[in-house]
C-alpha cells in the first residue's frame, strides 16, 4: 500500500497528496498525521490537494476528520489547492466540508495559519503550550 509523505516545514506539517488514494491509504494518512502532530508539536497542518482530480465522500470525510483531530491536538488544518471542477462536484454531491478551513494555495494557507495564531512564534510556544493565558501559567 502506498503511503502519503508528511513533510515538516518549520512549525507546519505539509501533506501534498500526489496519488489517487485508496481508502486504506486515506485512513493510513489520517493515523500518520495524528502521530506526527503530537511527535513534532506542530500547530499547523496544510493539506495540498492540487493534484487530486476528484474528492469523493470518503476523502471528504477524511479531510473533515483530520481537521477535527488536529483541532483536538491544538493544530490548525487548512486544505489548499482544490480544483474548480472538484469544488463544483462536491457542491453537487452535497458535501460541504464543514469545519474545514480552505485556501487557494500553499502560500495563502500558511498566511491563514499564521493569522490564526498571531501571539505565538514557533520558538516560545513550548513554554505555555497548555494554555493560551500566561497568567494561569504564572500562578500554576
Amino acid at each position: 500500500m502506498e503511503r502519503v509523505p508528511i513533510l515538516k516545514i518549520g512549525d507546519i506539517l505539509l501533506v501534498s497528496i500526489q496519488v489517487d488514494m485508496s481508502d486504506q491509504t486515506a485512513l493510513q494518512l489520517q493515523e500518520d498525521l495524528a502521530e506526527r502532530i503530537v511527535s513534532t508539536g506542530s500547530h499547523g497542518v496544510i493539506i495540498d490537494i492540487t493534484a487530486l482530480d476528484i474528492v469523493d465522500s470518503f476523502v471528504g470525510r477524511m479531510l473533515s476528520t483530520i481537521a477535527s483531530i488536529s483541532k483536538v491536538l491544538d493544530a490548525e488544518t487548512v486544505v489548499v489547492g482544490m480544483r474548480p471542477a472538484v469544488a463544483i462536484t462536491l457542491v453537487e454531491l452535497g458535501l460541504s466540508l464543514n469545519g474545514i478551513r480552505t485556501a487557494l494555495n500553499v502560500e495563502r494557507g500558511m498566511e491563514l495559519i499564521a493569522a490564526a495564531r498571531p501571539d505565538e512564534s514557533p520558538d516560545d510556544d513550548e513554554f505555555h503550550d497548555e494554555t493560551d493565558e500566561p497568567e494561569t501559567t504564572d500562578s500554576a
Binding site: D53, I54, A85
Partner: peptide, 17 residues
C-alpha cells in the same frame, strides 16, 4: 468537459465503494 469528467468519476467512485 473537465467538470463532467470529474462528476462522473466521483459518482463512479461512490458507487464502486
Amino acid at each position: 468537459s473537465l467538470v463532467d469528467q470529474t462528476k462522473v468519476v466521483t459518482a463512479a467512485s461512490e458507487l464502486a465503494r
